[in-house]
Design a protein around this nucleic acid. Structure first.
Lengths: 210, 210
DNA sequence: CATTAATTCAAACATGTGTTTTAATTGATT
DNA sequence: AATCAATTAAAACACATGTTTGAATTAATG
């Protein structure tokens, strides 16, 4: 068995189980058992459980952040050309659309999106800290763009409304994932397109309120 | 020491630690240590850790639900008298205001509110199931009232928008609590009134969108 | 083919968990 | 004051966790 296969299998299985049972709720024995590899393989290939977590997160979030960054930047560019402020709806879409579309780029990504959604509200410092490190700069970009779009709103208001928007988004991301939640999987037909069509009008109206 | 004191101290400490570190992340030894009681006291007074969790939740959520139910019902009553549909803003306020005000009814309640916020998105089945059992009927009441207020929106849309609203609310509730997150506690000055003033316009606009 | 490095494997380790047990202590009742 | 039930206390139990160890196996290199 190629070493890459073992590493890959561990990462994919870990991603799946982290999304379903959380980081703390997933034991290395559960991962290696489901992946069909030896228990010690995790520590051999990754060093520690925390390190495995970090690798799992990094693998998906770097390309995702790149897409979001690109879309936000080209939105600002376009607005500058037209000498207009970007529409808040476009700003939100530039951030959220890649996030939700990403979950359909591969079955594993679906689990990852669910994992993000769960982790951000969760009590587990280990997980939240890792995510925070990757997502914070992304959030600042979004905040700046939102301030451009809503020049008449005080920054505190914009901050809070982005906070609510994140809450709505995380809570929705959590629904995705191949996570097996019993025979009557109500969310089997959830697709990114439909989620986007529902959430964008809601948060756009929320950001513009009053 | 009165038996009530020991039980009370265990419940209060458990509530605090559950909110800060999660149910799984809180050991009975951490609870009994901080509460200054013997380890075995938990199993003596409550039977098991799960049973302690259930007691902690039940103590707060029953009176809270009663308030929310009363406000939603009297809102419908008033609307019926005036032969008008209730305003969606009032419906949302009737549900959310008691929830956030509740967190100032006592310092312990603050922890509890944070605990709810964290648990609803968390991966821990044990916790979510207990909360679900108590909150589901409440959610149905809210859904019905929202449908009355927005007769022109398809029920699917209303459902999704309430879902987003819950996401925003949970994510916000999570910020409350005496939870010590280091020396630079940015959210020390968060109060219910201010949260309400921020969130109501946002979710109202979201529900009404388009 | 022989040698060497990389990987896998089974077993053990140290620690932390919820729970149970059994004895000591307390507090009220007769 | 003596008795009895309720409560507390210390210790052990059985199990699960992440990690480490050292030998066995595999793959690559000369």
């Amino acid at each position: 068995m190629k070493p890459t296969d073992t590493k890959q299998k561990i990462m994919d299985t870990a991603e799946h189980l982290f999304a379903r049972d959380g980081y703390r709720g997933t034991s290395l024995r559960a991962i290696t058992g489901k992946a069909g590899v030896n228990l010690a393989a995790v520590n051999y290939h990754f060093g520690s459980k925390t390190s495995l977590l970090e690798t799992v997160i990094r693998r998906r979030i770097l390309p995702l952040n790149q897409i979001r960054k690109k879309r936000l930047e080209q939105l600002r560019e376009n607005a500058r050309k037209k000498k207009k402020t970007p529409d808040i709806k476009d700003v939100l879409t530039a951030f959220i659309e890649p996030t939700l579309l990403f979950m359909e780029s591969s079955p594993g990504a679906k689990n990852f999106i669910a994992f993000i959604g769960r982790s951000f509200t969760g009590p587990d410092d280990t997980v939240r800290k890792v995510f925070m490190r990757f997502i914070k700069p992304m959030f600042y970009l979004l905040f700046e763009a939102a301030c451009d779009s809503l020049p008449n709103q005080p920054q505190e208001t914009i901050f809070w409304r982005l906070h609510f928007t994140m809450g709505a988004l995380f809570h929705t991301m959590q629904l995705s994932g191949n996570v097996d939640i019993g025979p009557k999987n109500l969310h089997a037909d959830i697709n990114a397109k439909s989620l986007i069509n529902h959430i964008i009008p809601y948060i756009t109206a929320g950001m513009k309120a009053r």
